[in-house]
Amino acid sequence: MDAFLAQLPQQIINGLTLGAVYALIALGYSMVYGVLQMLNFAHGDVYMIGAFIGYGVMVALIPEGAPLITPVFIIILMLLVAMLGCGLLGVAIEQFAYRPLRNSPRLAPLISALGVSFFLQNAVQLTLTAEFRNYQTELLIPPGAGFDFGDTRLPMTRALVIVITIILMIVLQYLVRRTKLGKAMRAVAIDREAAAMMGVDVDRVIIATFFIGSALAGAAGVLTGIVFTRVWHFMGFTAGLKGFTAAVVGGIGNIPGAMLGGFLLGMTESFAVGFISPTYRDVIAFVVLVIVLLVRPRGLLGARIPQKV
């Protein structure tokens, strides 16, 4: 029990950090699913590209181991450029790989998404090689910085990731709940045709959705780089699967659900490693997931919409 209590606060911090990244990825999955009912399996690779864009910005602004401008601005720039770049990438992917398939059978965009995923991974390997890149987080945030609560340590990097994630989520909630675009998005999610008939520009809404979802993935990529430092061409594969899982657990298509699902998955993994068995982490995480879905077949926050006939 002592060992448990000694680890508990630290494991919560670990889980929250991991969960924040999962949640940001899950949001993109969930938003796209909401408006198009399709699984965007290239989403994980957009996240990977985001991590690389952030890396590029960082290298450009820290040429010789000394930051050119204040580190805080570098972090903000990394985030903004990565979000913009990934947003545009997401829109381009939608235009070229998914739009022609909008009224096709469900699995067609899925396969096309896998094609995009193959393409992005290998394009990155071709141009940037398969090597691991390391974010020089220590030059942005002093390694020792952090908050101590007794034996528990909340490093500054982790605090930053959690705070940025929460800010992004609040902005997103505002966007979806309070703005006209958000209203249009919700309308398209509920019934695309009816929304179109009410004068909503469905194409524009879909573009906006892809832009926002992909931008969040880009932010997740940069945050991953800042806190876990390693960036490589294949990182989107597993992360994409985790994000997908989180989105489904939360109730796919549901934005607060994706956030909740992400944090839940991060916590589950962290606790599985800390208190049960690191080796069987994924097994435990999936067992939890299956139990959640058996109890709530439409995810934690998924609405029980009666089936349309």
Binding site: A3, A6, Q7, Q10, Q11, I13, N14, G15, T17, L18, T224, F228, R230, F234, M235, F237, T238, A239, E269, S270, F271, V273, G274, S277, P278, T279, D282
Partner: peptide, 21 residues
């Protein structure tokens, strides 16, 4: 004795566990 996976990108929980062990 535990296993991690080659595509894992975070070991903080594992380190916490080992530190406490």
């Amino acid at each position: 004795r535990e296993s991690v996976q080659q595509d894992d990108g975070d070991f903080s929980s594992l380190v916490t566990l080992i530190d406490a062990s």
